[in-house]
Simulated assay, not measured.
Amino acid sequence: MPVISTERLTKRYPGVTALESLSIDVGDGVTGLVGANGAGKSTLIKILLGLTGATSGGARVLGHDIDTEGLALRSRVGYMPEHDCLPGDVSATELVVHLARMSGLPTSAARERAADTLRHVGLYEERYRPIGGYSTGMKQRVKLAQALVHDPDVVFLDEPTNGLDPAGRDEMLALVRRIYTDFGISVLVTSHLLGELERICDNVVIIDGGTLLRSSSVADFTRSSAQLALEVVAEPATALAALRAAGLEVTRDGLLLLVELAGDETYDLVRDVVADHGLGLVRLEPRRHHIAEVFDEEATRVAR
C-alpha cells in the first residue's frame, strides 16, 4: 500500500490552478517533491494534511481518506511548515512538550520524548532558551523536532533548508535522511533545489505548474550516460590536453573531465594516459545524469 496516493487531485483558486489532475503514488523511504516556487508543492502538502480542501479528486495517506478520516490521519503524521511560525517567548522544550501533549502523549511521556527529539536534532544544550533568541538554523531544528516528537509514520517537510547557509543545509539534509534510516519514518520533503534532494532521497516526484512531470526512483533519474567522469590530481587543463592528444573526445566540467565512452578500451586508454603523464587518478567512473538535467529535459518535452 502506498504511503501517499492521489487520484486526479485538482486545486483551483480564482484565476489560478495550483494543482491539475495530479495522480501519484509515494512509497516508503525519503521522497523528494521537486518544483520551482509556485509549482504547487506546498498546496499539495496542505491538502494531504486537511488544511485546505481540493477542488476535485481525492487522496489517501497511510490508507486514510483525507476527506473522511482526517483525525485518524493527523495523529500519524508530522508536519514541518515552510514559514517561520514559532513563538519567540517560549523555550524549545516548552513548545515541543506542548505539541507532544496535543498529539495525545501523557505529560511524562511528552517530556521524555521532547528531550530525546531535541537531542536528535542537536538542540539539547539549548533547549531551555527562548526561541526568539535562536538562529534561523536552530529554529528550523525546532520545527523538525515538533514534527517528530509524537513518533509519526510519515512526516511532511516543506523546504526544510530555507534560509540556511551551506553548512546548515548539509546538517539539515543529514537529519532528514536519518529520519528514515534510523527511525523508519517515511518522509515527503519539498525543495526547489534539485541537487539537495538528489543526495538524500530514494524517490523524486517532479511537478511543474501543478502537473506531474515525472515520478521515479533517484537511481532511474540519475541513469548512466555514455561518458566517463575523470578527476585527477593534476591541473585539469593539463590532463585535458594529454587525453585529447591520445585521440579521446574530452570536455571539462569544473574539476571533472568528461570522456566520451567508445567501449571498454576507453577505460584502458584513460588509465594509460593518466599513468604515463603522472596525472594522479582520483576518480574514474561512468558519469550519471543529475536530476536538474532530467528536469530540464522533461520540461522541454512537455512544452513541445
Rank of each mutant, 00 (worst) to 15 (best):
S5G: 01
S216R: 09
P152I: 02
V273A: 04
D84F: 04
T55P: 12
M102L: 14
R111K: 11
L269G: 05
Y267M: 13
Y267K: 09
L118Q: 08
F183V: 08
D268L: 15
E198T: 05
V96S: 00
R101P: 15
L86P: 09
V30D: 01
S42D: 01
G70W: 09
L9K: 05
A100E: 00
Y13F: 15
L197M: 08
A109P: 15
G247E: 06
G163D: 05
K46V: 01
I206F: 07
E265H: 11
V233E: 15
V270K: 10
H277S: 07
F221C: 05
Y13Q: 02
I66S: 04
T55K: 12
V34P: 02
V233Q: 15
A110R: 04
P87C: 14
V294G: 11
L86E: 10
G195H: 04
D170I: 00
P81W: 02
I4G: 08
T17D: 07
L256H: 14
D165V: 13
A246G: 02
T238R: 13
G15M: 08
E94T: 14
S42G: 04
A237D: 13
S224H: 13
D182P: 10
V204D: 03
A110K: 06
G38C: 11
R283Y: 00
T190R: 01
G78F: 01
T251Q: 09
M138Y: 00
E196M: 07
A72N: 12
T52Q: 05
E293A: 06
A242M: 08
E69C: 02
D151N: 13
V77A: 12
R129H: 04
A109M: 10
D202S: 14
A241I: 12
Y267G: 13
T300M: 15
R288Q: 15
R12K: 13
L86C: 06
G50W: 09
H64Q: 10
E298K: 08
I200D: 02
D202Q: 13
H289V: 12
V250H: 06
E94R: 10
L144F: 02
V250I: 07
R223N: 14
R178I: 08
P286V: 03
T31V: 06
A229T: 11
G247W: 10
A18D: 05
L22G: 00
A234W: 12
G88R: 01
E297F: 00
D151R: 14
T93Q: 10
G38Y: 07
A226L: 12
A226Y: 06
G184F: 03
R74F: 08
G247V: 02
R76W: 03
G58E: 07
L173M: 14
D264M: 06
R271C: 10
G137W: 05
A167D: 05
L118D: 09
T136W: 04
R129I: 07
K41E: 01
A145W: 03
L197W: 00
I179L: 05
L105S: 05
D65N: 05
T222D: 10
V302F: 14
R12E: 14
V270N: 09
E69V: 03
V16L: 12
H83G: 12
S42K: 03
R304H: 11
A115M: 06
I291L: 12
R178D: 14
S21Q: 09
L123Q: 00
L281S: 10
N37R: 07
